[in-house]
Design a protein around this nucleic acid. Structure first.
Length: 630
DNA sequence: GTAGGGTTAG
């Protein structure tokens, strides 16, 4: 008897448990589900949700929001779909906030159609519902769609708030949109919000209005690091590199720490100005982010564009992760610096690494072919790009081919290709053909191409000069006068040739005819000595410059004082022996300066790197990396 | 208790 009682005592709690299970079935199911959701136990929660559904039950909205968060963190799309179906089971209408969360989940899963479907089904929508969809469309660059939704939202009587404005601003595709939104923001008194402010700065910068971006920035009373990044990035993106560096100094003075985004823009600014020393200094601060992909890409680009290929190769080889931008940067960088074969080898390596080339990669590849006169390779890549990579040839690809064929003496093929272009040739395309005519000395075609350039870009001073020289060479003085009149009437002024050189992290600018540099006397003295010595070994200053330099300084009285010669003389005086002289130019190098640099590199036993707007020349021991083909 | 801003290649 005793043993039976003991057994009963042991059994009873189990029985009690079973009893309570069956009596409070619904509550228990809901409680179990809630517990799993809060514990973020996705498999158990899904199972429990299944039981709820079979009983026609729903838990409270907060529980579901926990579960959806869990799906998001696990990127569990299938489970997310099941939750959505459960919430709408048998025509049930979830609470608005929950639908907002579901939409957000679909947006994060890049399932915009599903998100929009829920949005369409909503009986009511609040500002968050609208903002979720607007933000989704602007993030994936469906700008028109985002702006359309904003209009519908306003018509629906829902007022946008700081969240709406900060996400819709990036969708602006014209000044009109920005002005309209900016007015709305001011009217609502929302311009002091940091999110709105940085979005405004960014959109002005992206629309190439850095001055407008700066005025928004300057009105700021309190800001954060991101607003600073927006304005610095805005200047860097608009080739206002010195402004970007100035703002960076201000940012540091204001006590903000430079993070990845800041440093990336700083590097871009260094790249724009070819400031190798400053770029290297920035590199020191980047060491702690040594595996940041974007920063490393910017570093590779900076080293390539500052003409320091060894550093670019080193950063590239040390990167653990590379994307299409990394490869494209390095390929273009090698091509621009005259290492075409290496660029093409790298392209093959890129493909075998599994990275798919894009439009820009192929531009780099064709650029490499055009800079080395690799006609057959060029045709191969050009003809196969569509078939192999699904990329339609664009203006830039045609431009590379026109350059390649023309400079290789196949001007007829070049013109044929230009006429076959699927997209309309623009001023750049015609200028490319003009450049090829220069190399080939084809005056008739050059005149035609130059006229086309001026038609499409009436502000292009360099082309007027070329055209004028063509007429002068043929003694067509009336036409020469006509060109001069047109330039005067249109207010077109020739950009003065300018060269920059960095010495002790300071930029020194030399402009032709400008005597304002404090050491100009010594520079001229050194230059005259050099010329004298070079003439002694057979250097003959070039005097006939008709068509010799497309956008160079051919109109000047004397070649003696071309800006790169001044900068080179300054470099020789100031930089220690053995240090490479790096010069950046605003115009293309002329033939005479090219010969001059080759000879100086030998005479003075100096490495010289000159970067012009198109490509780079590495002079060493009397030779140039371009092989006199540019 | 849900929605927002900045960085890289031609």
């Amino acid at each position: 008897m005793k043993s039976v009682t003991r057994k009963l005592k042991l059994i009873r709690p189990v029985l009690t448990l079973r009893c309570s299970y069956s009596s409070t079935d619904q509550t228990h199911l809901v409680n179990e589900f809630t517990r799993h959701c809060y514990q973020r136990d996705l498999p158990r929660a899904m199972k429990a949700m299944d039981s709820l559904q079979s009983h026609g039950l729903w838990a409270d909205s907060t529980t579901y929001s926990e579960l959806i968060k869990c799906c998001l963190s696990h990127r569990a799309v299938h489970e997310g779909n099941l939750i959505c179906r459960h919430l709408y089971f048998k025509g049930h209408q979830p609470m608005m906030f929950l639908v907002n969360i579901l939409m957000n989940m679909y947006v994060k899963f890049n399932l915009l159609n599903d998100a929009h479907h829920l949005f369409d089904q909503m009986p009511d929508r609040n500002v968050i519902s609208w903002t979720t969809m607007i933000s989704a469309y602007s993030k994936c660059k469906l700008h028109q769609k985002a702006l359309e939704l904003l209009v519908l939202m306003l018509r629906d009587g829902v007022r946008p708030n700081v969240y709406t404005y900060s996400s819709v601003l990036r969708a602006c595709n014209g000044m009109f949109d920005v002005r309209m939104l900016h007015c709305g923001i001011i009217k609502e008194g929302l311009e002091s919000d940091v999110f709105v402010r940085s979005a405004l700065i960014d959109v002005f910068a992206k629309l190439c209005k850095p001055e407008d971006a700066l005025s928004v920035f300057d009105e700021m009373v309190t800001g954060d690091a991101i607003v600073w990044n927006s304005i610095i990035g805005g200047f860097a993106q608009n080739s206002k590199s010195d402004g970007a560096l100035e703002l960076f100094k201000r940012m540091k003075r204001a006590g903000f720490i430079a993070e990845q985004a800041t440093l990336t823009s700083v590097l871009r600014a260094c790249t724009g100005l070819a400031l190798l020393e400053l770029g290297m200094q920035a590199h020191v601060h980047i060491v702690k982010y040594d595996q940041d992909l974007i920063l490393n890409n910017a570093l590779v680009d900076m080293y390539c564009k500052c003409g320091s290929l060894e550093d670019a190769r080193r950063v590239f080889s040390q990167m653990k992760e590379r994307d299409v931008i990394t490869w494209s940067t390095m390929i273009s960088g090698l091509a621009q610096n005259g290492y075409s074969q290496e660029a093409l080898k790298l392209f093959e390596l890129m493909k075998s690494s599994g990275t798919k080339p894009n439009y820009i990669t192929i531009v780099g590849v064709l650029f490499a072919c055009s800079h080395a006169g690799l006609v057959e390779d060029g045709w191969y890549y050009f003809r196969s790009m569509k078939k192999l990579y699904g990329i339609d040839p664009g203006r830039e690809h045609y431009g590379c081919m026109i350059d390649l064929l023309g400079k290789a003496g196949k001007l007829d093929d070049s013109v044929k290709l230009l006429n076959e272009m699927e997209c309309e040739p623009d001023a750049v395309t015609w200028r490319t053909l003009l450049g090829a005519c220069r190399v080939q000395g084809n005056m008739v075609l050059a005149e035609y191409a130059a006229k086309k350039v001026i038609e499409l870009d009436p502000e292009d001073a360099g082309t007027y000069t070329v055209l004028s020289n063509i007429y002068a060479n043929s003694q067509k003085w009336d036409s020469v006068e006509d060109i001069r009149t047109r330039m005067r009437d249109r207010g077109v002024k020739k950009e003065p040739g300018c060269s920059w050189i960095e010495v002790n992290k300071q930029i020194h600018a030399f402009i032709i005819g400008d005597e304002s540099h404090p050491q100009i006397i010594q520079v001229n003295k050194k230059l005259n000595q050099l010329i004298h010595r070079l003439i002694g070994i057979g250097y003959v200053p070039e005097t006939n410059f008709v068509l010799q330099d497309l956008e160079g300084e051919q109109m000047e009285d004397s070649l003696r004082h071309h800006s790169e010669k001044l900068a080179l003389a300054f470099g020789l005086i100031t930089l220690p022996f053995g240090k490479v002289i790096r010069i950046r130019k605003n115009l293309r190098i002329c033939g005479d300066c090219h010969v001059f640099c080759k000879l100086v590199s030998k005479l003075e036993n100096r490495g010289i790197v000159i970067r012009d707007p198109i490509r780079y020349h590495h002079f060493e021991d009397g030779q140039c990396s371009c092989g006199d083909y540019w």
